[in-house]
């Protein structure tokens, strides 16, 4: 569907079919359902049929994320950094597209440009951490026995991310990038549910990811209804960690209750201004990591 052609205009624009992103491919939801996105503009109305993903789409996405996880985690830190940087490069090249989608999602021109800038910069920021966070957080532990003892971070595994909708000053891209980057830079794979009100940038970001050497399944993006899917995100037993920004409401309670079923890690991101510098720190990477401690004997 589409921006409608004005009467008398010579050429009707071709509009993109909005799909979801699973295992590096762009299927439509298996459920065949949709919801209508609209920019609520009378002067330049735009609507799109957005996939309303089902629990089965989520299940498939978790399978894809699990399949990709070991390979992604064992890729070199250098390579992961390069790939994150590549995402930034591709995004930079498509900034006009993202700016216009952000405007369809409610941003002013200034806000849209600023959000694209911030999103690219954030990707670069986390790309740079790929081969450094381990050096910040790993420890050599001086145990009393004759052992070389060290602790390193390892990715939690498959991370489910509920994209936050809490910041009225951002329009769907920055929060998305800010949630994905620290998760994947640390070797996790993720299944992300885009904000219901900001689906366009999520879908386009998926296209950027596909064009950026990100292995299929490392990031999976669904669109749809959070209230419908939150229980499955929180309860799936092959998900190791759930990241959300629900601020102590019924959803956050429900998430922790369901997550307890498999002792899933629950990372509650602050309700935050995503533009703020405080949303850039390596502790956000550590949130979705496990600490592994190894004892190695010293002897001859």
């Amino acid at each position: 569907m589409a921006a409608k052609p004005a009467h008398g205009q010579a050429r009707a624009p071709i509009n993109k079919t909005c799909k979801i992103f699973i295992g590096g491919k762009f299927p439509r939801t298996e459920s065949g359902r949709y919801y209508l996105f609209s920019n609520n503009s009378e002067s330049a109305p735009y609507t799109a049929n957005i996939c309303r993903s089902s629990r089965k789409d989520f299940r498939n996405a978790v399978v894809a994320a699990r399949a990709a996880q070991n390979g992604w985690a064992t890729a070199s830190a250098y390579l992961r950094g390069q790939i994150l940087y590549r995402i930034a490069e591709i995004l930079e090249g498509r900034r006009e597209q993202f700016a216009s989608e952000l405007k369809l999602q409610g941003a002013s021109t200034r806000q849209a440009n600023s959000e694209v800038d911030a999103s690219i910069d954030r990707l670069v920021y986390f790309a740079g951490w790929s081969d450094k966070y381990q050096q910040i957080f790993s420890t050599v532990n001086p145990v009393s026995s004759s052992h070389f003892n060290f602790s390193v971070l390892e990715p939690s595994g498959v991370v489910a991310v509920l994209s936050p909708e809490c910041d009225p000053m951002q329009f769907g891209l920055l929060a998305l990038v800010s949630n994905i980057a620290p998760v994947i830079v640390g070797g996790n794979t993720c299944v992300l549910l885009a904000e219901e009100t900001h689906p366009l940038t999520a879908i386009s970001l998926a296209e950027v990811l596909q064009a950026s050497d990100v292995p299929g399944g490392v990031v999976n993006i669904l669109t749809g209804s959070k209230s419908e899917l939150v229980d499955f995100f929180a309860s799936h037993k092959d998900v190791n960690c759930i990241v959300h920004s629900e601020a102590n409401n019924a959803n956050s309670t429900r998430i922790q209750q369901l997550a307890s079923e498999n002792l899933k890690r629950v990372v509650q991101r602050p309700v935050a201004q995503w533009h703020g510098e405080t949303m850039q720190n390596p502790y956000l990477i550590k949130d979705t990591q496990e600490v592994k401690t190894t004892w190695h004997p010293i002897g001859s």
Binding site: S145, S146, H147, P297, I298, G299
Partner: peptide, 8 residues
């Protein structure tokens, strides 16, 4: 032989 284990 693991020396550390022997010591223990």
């Amino acid at each position: 032989v693991d020396e550390t284990g022997v010591n223990e």
